[in-house]
């Protein structure tokens, strides 16, 4: 499973980058996104859900960032 580092990327660029990364995948494939605390971790998961992807989990990293696991939804 690939990990995309979106730390330091502001809204909505982080979401659009995540969208572009998901476009490369097949439905059912998984992707990890590394997100900043604050706006990013609040907005990006909700927006991905709105696009029809499946959120599988959220983990706080040792550095205080967040790792979001997403499964690509049906087209």
């Amino acid at each position: 499973m690939a990990t995309i580092d979106l730390r330091g990327v502001s809204c909505p660029t982080n979401f659009v980058k995540a969208k572009l990364a998901l476009e490369e995948l097949e439905p059912g494939d998984r992707l990890e996104l590394l997100l900043d605390d604050g706006e990013a971790v609040k907005n990006v998961p909700r927006s991905l859900k709105g696009d029809g992807h499946k959120l599988l989990g959220l983990q706080k990293t040792a550095e205080g960032d967040y790792l979001l696991t997403v499964e690509k939804g049906e087209e």
Binding site: V41, K42, P45, R46, L55, L56, G57, L58, Y66
Partner: peptide, 12 residues
């Protein structure tokens, strides 16, 4: 609930 914690993280 799958215990992902997103709701707690999102609750301003």
């Amino acid at each position: 609930c799958i215990s992902c914690g997103l709701c707690a993280k999102n609750c301003t």
